[in-house]
Design a protein around this nucleic acid. Structure first.
Ligand SMILES: [Zn+2]
Ligand SMILES: [Zn+2]
Ligand SMILES: [Zn+2]
Ligand SMILES: [Zn+2]
Lengths: 149, 149
DNA sequence: TTGACAATGATACTCGGTCTCAACTAGCCT
DNA sequence: AGGCTAGTTGAGACCGAGTATCATTGTCAA
């Protein structure tokens, strides 16, 4: 019954001239509901149990389409596996909690001083930066502090 | 003839209780001479032409050993391929030139303000950061300015 | 409604990387 | 120098993520 979010989901899929198929809706909703980064295989495993007719290649294609349509971003996680996270396309970088796996967006403005220094100190002209910060999110940090006493 | 650098190369391989084999020397020297990031396959292709007896698995193993011994670092380049670059183990991040492929080390101190902000603004406890900055190095930048007029 | 053509799903395939194992050898001990 | 032994090599089987192929299906605009 989440007709609002469902609606906008369908709209965003339809945008860009893509056909609105049940498979794409399925994948997009699953990724959005996860609220964390998942690999295509993980997503396929989850969905395949309840949707036996869903193909593996379709999941890969649906995720790729989401990336191109600005509904998700692909992160190259160490170990040569791509993971996908539902989020806006503008920003570029994430805080990834190693305990609960949640992904938080980093304010791009915080990168400006670093990029300026790179230019001035190294004469290096920055085109693109790949940055992911791993650690403990605020809530996991509180929980672990409490547990540690 | 580069007996000094050759010597220290052998020393560094021997350190950590590893046996000094011609294959390891071969791989280590090739990576050091390249002065840029290379994938295991690229390195194998280069070496295999002049050393037909060198095995593919050996190159992968030699590179992995170099990473563990602090002679090289592995970068997860986009497109699920690992590339290796000969450099010290202490620093963590690189400026990668997209024209000449050279890799330059980034002074870690430049990251401190960003990491502090992440802690204070998001309450996020940073364990580890993966950062690579892509663009044009100083010399390629000069060359391209000159060419563009 | 219908037809063009995008999308799906099954499967074959590619390719980076690892595993296995018999043959080899670096390094140590005598 | 000669031998021992455990680490290393190389060939090839294997694995797993991702892509390509192609007949079939389904969307959506006309
Ligand atoms: Zn995000
Ligand atoms: Zn957390
Ligand atoms: Zn470096
Ligand atoms: Zn350059």
């Amino acid at each position: 019954m989440p007709s609002r979010s469902e609606r906008s989901l369908a709209d965003r899929i339809s945008a860009g001239g893509r056909r609105l198929t049940p498979q794409r809706v399925l994948v997009a909703r699953a990724l959005a509901d996860a609220r964390r980064a998942l690999s295509a295989q993980e997503l396929y495993d989850r969905l395949h149990t309840t949707q036996p007719r869903l193909g593996r290649a379709t999941v890969f294609r649906a995720l790729e389409a989401q990336v191109q349509d600005g509904m998700a971003r692909r992160l190259e996680r160490s170990g040569h596996v791509s993971v996908y996270v539902a989020c806006d396309p503008e920003h570029h970088h994430h805080l990834v909690c190693e305990r609960c796996e949640r992904v938080e967006d980093l304010d791009e403005k915080l990168l400006q001083p670093l990029l300026r220094s790179v230019d001035s100190r190294y004469g290096f002209h920055v085109n693109h930066t790949a940055l992911d910060i791993y650690g403990l999110c605020a809530s996991c940090r509180r929980a672990s502090r409490k547990a540690a006493g």
